[in-house]
Amino acid sequence: MCSGITSASSAAVAFGDTYLAEFITSPMPLMAILFIALLGVINFRGVRESVTTNVVLTCIEIGGLLIIIGVGAWAVLNGAGEPSRLVEFNTQDQTMLVAITSATSLAFFSMVGFEDSVNMAEETKDPARVFPKAMLWGMVIAATIYIFVSVTSSLLVPAGDLEAAESGALLKVIDIGAPGMPREIFSAIGLFAVINSALINMLMASRLVYGMANERIIPKVFGTVHPFRRSPWVAIVFTSVIAMVLVSTVDIDVLGGTTALLLLVVFAVVNVAVLALRRDPVPHKHFRAPTIIPVFAAIFCLYLASPLSGRPARDYVVAAILLVVGLVLWGVNHLAMRRSSEAATADE
């Protein structure tokens, strides 16, 4: 839940500070807050509307990435770009291992989002057969597109300039590879892309809060649904408010790093759970991964989440604050349930 909120918050910052700035001049925190509020309204409308919006925006997002690949390929074929950058390793004061793993732990942020679909797997027909294929093929396609984008970007723009541009890095590629292309076109595509990323993360986060409330992990009020829309409106408001606070107070680099940190820890726990759950036989058909994959995955995730990978301390601070909020909610719920149980016992 926390990783979903931080991911949506980083998208909101990119929305207000990078892509929207190409069209209008406005205070970034205000635009990011209004952006989160709009996502909350779409989320409140329901799953059908949210998922339909997600599919449309995904198609637009893929189109934007294909434009980047095409622009980069055209520029390289016409003599632009510097191939030597692809084999340049500038580790500064780090060792080669720490440099690669710290980059990997941050780049992991670009692959988040697939785990959100697990919350919707029960909505599919024959999920044991359909969902694993969709998940694995989706990751392969996304990784392939990202590799092409990163290669073409590195050929055209020095690594230092890409890092300095932060969320506007791909606009730098357009400026160099296709200087005649209006930035507004790609900025519009970028707007749709960050809307897509933030929407699916806020959808997932609010449903997780709703699910935890139904499981009596956090106060039951968070499981309240609207009488007409049947959407968990209290969970939607709660997650939206946290996202608004984050976009107003935390830098986008910290949000991205914190998202990656939280999800690496979650994935490590999930991979250990995969091994533990295999001891419990189930009567229905299900997907089974080769044992070596969850073993290595758990080890790698824990390493990338640790300080050994070169992760800055600020990521741990933000993650700790968010987790404390969750623990406080759990503690309040635990006390409330215990008092309710004691009262029921006294009545008997």
Rank of each mutant, 00 (worst) to 15 (best):
S341L: 12
S84E: 07
I299T: 12
T259H: 00
A12G: 04
P132W: 13
F108Y: 08
N333K: 09
A205Q: 05
T25F: 08
H226S: 00
A276V: 02
G211T: 03
S240L: 00
L203E: 05
S105P: 09
L304E: 07
A260R: 10
R48S: 13
F131A: 08
V234Q: 03
P281D: 10
E22D: 06
A273D: 14
V47I: 15
V269Q: 11
A319K: 13
I174H: 08
H286Q: 14
Y303M: 07
S3L: 14
A193H: 02
I293C: 03
D251K: 12
T95R: 02
A99E: 01
L327E: 13
L203Y: 11
G72E: 09
V51T: 10
R45I: 15
I242A: 06
S84K: 06
S340M: 12
A178S: 08
V265N: 05
I321C: 15
F222H: 01
S26N: 00
E22C: 08
A273M: 15
A103T: 09
R216M: 04
T18L: 03
I200A: 08
L304V: 03
G40P: 06
G310P: 05
S154I: 06
G63P: 08
F267K: 00
I218K: 10
V194L: 05
N43M: 11
A99Y: 07
M28Q: 14
R230N: 10
A169Q: 04
G138P: 13
L275R: 14
Q92P: 05
T101N: 01
W74E: 01
I185D: 03
G168L: 14
F131L: 11
L170K: 03
E123N: 12
A143Q: 04
E88W: 09
A260H: 12
F267V: 04
A169P: 04
V209A: 15
S50E: 12
L65P: 01
D253W: 08
F114G: 14
Y303A: 03
L97W: 03
E82Y: 00
V269K: 12
I145K: 11
S309T: 09
R230Q: 13
F192P: 06
V47N: 02
R311F: 03
G168S: 15
W330Q: 10
V272D: 09
C59R: 01
S309V: 08
A21G: 02
A260F: 12
F238K: 05
F300W: 15
V149H: 07
N333G: 13
L77D: 14
L106C: 07
I60E: 06
F109W: 13
N90C: 02
I62A: 02
I299L: 15
A260I: 11
E49C: 08
C59P: 00
A305Y: 01
F23K: 02
D251Y: 04
V250M: 09
A260S: 15
L155I: 10
A14S: 12
L203D: 00
C2Y: 08
E88S: 15
E184P: 01
S197P: 01
V173K: 06
T239K: 05
G180I: 04
G310V: 03
M181L: 15
A313W: 07
I67V: 12
V194G: 02
